[in-house]
Computed example of a mutant assay.
Amino acid sequence: MMSLTKNVRTSLAVGTTAVMAMALASCGGGGGSASGDCEPATKVAIAYQPGLGYASLLIAKQEKTVEKALPDVDVTWQEMNSGSAIRDGIVGGNLQVGAGGIGPFLVGLDAGVDWKVLSGLNNMSLYLNTMDSSITNLEDLEGAGSIAMPAPDSIQAVVLRKGAEEELGDAKALDSQIVSMGHPDGVQALIGGQIAAHLTSPPFQAQEIDEGATKLLDSYQLFDEHTFNSIFTKTDFAECNPKVVEELVTVVADANAMLTDEPAQAAKVLSEEMGIPAAEVEEQVTSEDVAFVNTPTGFATFAEFMESIGMIQEVPETGDMFFDTEATADAS
């Protein structure tokens, strides 16, 4: 157990150090916008992850609304397994726009990545599920086996540590059990009995419940309602590409309006993209703990907890987290 704990802590430390090094290396070599000599991008790579938490972007991808709004820009879409991988891609210059959870975004910001949130994508509760009937709480889970999630600095990892602090008195009590795993693989590993628990997101958590899983944690009970995913980019890119930023915010707002006002139509589009029956998708997008809203919320609450357990060094100011867009006027 001790070696595993050391590995998790080391991976966090090494990851943060790598982000800091990449962020420093990218400074001064980016857009050159401060001197007014930048040129608008002709290619934009947008990264997202599997799951319903990216429904707004999946609709945009399926219907090519970004491409239609930006006909002179070569838009590409990349699916990745974790927010930390997306963060590294943006810092390294391989991606221009990313979508992900609060955890990797705040870790990057704290490490010196000059980026901000353009818009929220949704609010969703995140579940920690188990298939083991002998595990009814975190005390039972401690030492019982691996706990899968996208990465040790994912929003899911923050949720687990908050639960561990409240139930076990130590936020890092379960760190030795964390294993990095993409959501689809995590579902199969949980159902197959290869892991003790899986902290995931819609639609994967509902799929696990349908297979007989039991919920051990609910992020809304720990942090109140909060943003699950948002879209973000670096400051120099945003300053040099205001049209891209404006259209992205609009595209997300339009997709969220479809998801909220026309869930059946949205489910049909998502079914084609995700390979899930439309009826199942519609049930998911209309769940009571799912809301497709543009305003980011809960960032400060997560940041305060992350600072308290050493995941970040300080809580950022609101203006340092969000661009001034139509979506972020009431961001928190």
Rank of each mutant, 00 (worst) to 15 (best):
S3A: 15
N7Q: 13
V8F: 10
R9A: 14
T10M: 14
S26P: 09
C27K: 15
G28H: 06
G31W: 08
G32K: 09
D37L: 13
D37Y: 12
A45P: 00
L58V: 01
A60T: 05
Q62K: 15
E67Q: 12
A69E: 10
D72K: 11
N81V: 03
I86W: 02
I86Q: 00
G93M: 04
A99N: 11
G103F: 02
L106H: 06
A111D: 12
V113M: 14
D114W: 09
W115G: 03
V117K: 02
S125Q: 08
N129C: 03
M131G: 04
D132N: 03
D132A: 02
S133Q: 08
I147R: 14
M149G: 00
S154K: 02
I155A: 15
V158D: 14
V159P: 08
G163W: 10
E165R: 05
E167S: 14
A171Y: 06
A171F: 05
A171N: 06
V179Q: 14
V179N: 14
V179W: 13
G182H: 11
V187I: 12
A189M: 08
A189L: 08
L190V: 09
L199E: 04
P202T: 13
E208C: 06
L216Y: 10
D218E: 14
F232K: 03
K234M: 15
T235G: 01
V249E: 06
D254M: 03
M258Q: 15
L259H: 06
V269I: 12
E272Y: 03
E273S: 14
E282F: 07
D289N: 13
V290I: 15
F292M: 11
N294I: 14
P296K: 13
F299T: 10
E304N: 03
F305A: 00
S308I: 07
I309R: 01
I312S: 02
Q313K: 01
E317V: 08
T318V: 11
D320I: 08
F322L: 09
A331F: 08
